[in-house]
Design a binder for these strands. Sequence first.
DNA 1: ACTATCTATTACATATTTTGAAATTATCTA
DNA 2: TAGATAATTTCAAAATATGTAATAGATAGT
Lengths: 300, 300
Amino acid sequence: MDKFDAMRIFVEVAEANSFVAASRKLDLSAPAVTRAIARLEKVLGVQLFNRTTRHIRLTDTGARFFDDAKRILEDLEQAEAMANGSYIQPKGELTITAPVLFGQMHITPILTEYLQANPAVTANALFFDRISNLIDEGMDIAIRIGPLKDSSLYATRVGHVQRIVCASPEYLKEYGTPEHPSELTDHRIIQATTVEPSTSWRFSSPKGKVSVKVTPRMNCCQNGAAICAASHGFGITRLMSYQVGEELKAGVLQRILKDFEMDPLPVNIVYLGGQKANAKIRSFIDLAVERLRANPFIDH
Amino acid sequence: MDKFDAMRIFVEVAEANSFVAASRKLDLSAPAVTRAIARLEKVLGVQLFNRTTRHIRLTDTGARFFDDAKRILEDLEQAEAMANGSYIQPKGELTITAPVLFGQMHITPILTEYLQANPAVTANALFFDRISNLIDEGMDIAIRIGPLKDSSLYATRVGHVQRIVCASPEYLKEYGTPEHPSELTDHRIIQATTVEPSTSWRFSSPKGKVSVKVTPRMNCCQNGAAICAASHGFGITRLMSYQVGEELKAGVLQRILKDFEMDPLPVNIVYLGGQKANAKIRSFIDLAVERLRANPFIDH
DNA sequence: ACTATCTATTACATATTTTGAAATTATCTA
DNA sequence: TAGATAATTTCAAAATATGTAATAGATAGT
């Protein structure tokens, strides 16, 4: 028996929710379908369908295997097409995660471009500021900012960003521009909790590390709110450089204490299994690397 | 031909760089190997190996297909292992949220049982009475009481509970047992704010909905305090049926106005991404569903 | 309650494919 | 040039797959 054929039959049956319907669609006899499924179940040692003589229904494991089978068949189809040189469009579901603002600002445009070019792919963009487990949560690709820990993953570095301190020119004009981190204690501070959860802001200088305890007048659990408040001249905040690229360029915000910034944080595209990633994932990564490397708000 | 077998043979041949060596390793005859590869090449319409009668060497497309084939076979192996359940040993961190009292009374015992059975899992139980976003807060599983809104989540219904009105027999003896919601205005009311945040208590009767404005003598933001106060005969309170199962059974509290109770509220176990739910999550859900369905304080 | 109908499954004879031993061909090494 | 060995082909036996027809079970409509 060809296992892949059996899987194709299985997928068809599961979608049609009927053996006969699937047999008609696949141009097979009904017994052929029954037998294919029966064998698959025997090989797996698991019931895939609950059946009566008139109805069938996927079991829980069946439903899980259905997803797997579908993905694997798609993957196989791609691989075969690749081998014989006939290009076929990637299809299926692509799940990607990134920090909230990074995702919104820098990944979304890439993703829409990718989706436009690959109409058969549906995307799942999960932007949040906590680190998730790629495998557990079924992610295909993650954007990570900062040093990497999990070494079982493959990563491509696309540049680096920095924690920067900034305020609006109006604010600085009125209250003065700090020349040393220690002066921050006298200023109105806007705290973006996702960037810098602690109220000790750490800096580095030629003379070594400096830690300054700030007392925020405003706490934002949303970075966007901190940007907004700082732009309106309320005070000084600390953010990621990629979050305020536009504002810095437009002069709405001004970068200060540049000489005391900590080491830059790498930006990585992280994914499972190196060259083993399939066409869908590889093609997205290729595009993303290219676009992110060309992104003026990410340093290289 | 079984394409799956053919691919396995192909991978083996490519790794051994020899047909005979692969045949020995796979316990097959040499012709079987030759034929399998020949067929695979025919199906793909592509040369996979350059061969002389004495040597073989992967072609470029062969090398690429080798990577793909290996990945697909691994993926399939995983999927099969997943299906027949042989691989799963849950491990990692499991984060679960539930309403405070529901968690304390009904989830904690299940969780401890689960942790005992799965020593490699650590749990994070977050019990609070506000609804949190599963994704944002990194929850794996949530227990939700009431109708579900977020349809992007998967849910398994385990039963239903009700808002019930109750008081101690002593109190009822002294002050009388209300026969209609409207009589509540004359009674001492203990308000459990998390169950019924408004002071309008809504009921349903054969004649339609009834809303009664109560004036609580005591406001509890902790359900446990309301239970305690009612048990001591202070007054009438309104709680969830699962919160006072023991008290009702022991006769410490007595359920009143039963004919005017609103429709029952479903109890659901909610989790992300069905097929992607991993062993850790699935196994907990399996256990929790079983235990909760057997729970006498939850109706079915 | 009964029957017609449709679905899944089994039985069985037939057709197809797969198999390995042996023979063949080609290349490398000594 | 001969000997050795790898890949391939040949061929008959064995294994497998297939479709038709028959069976069994469930449902819907009368």
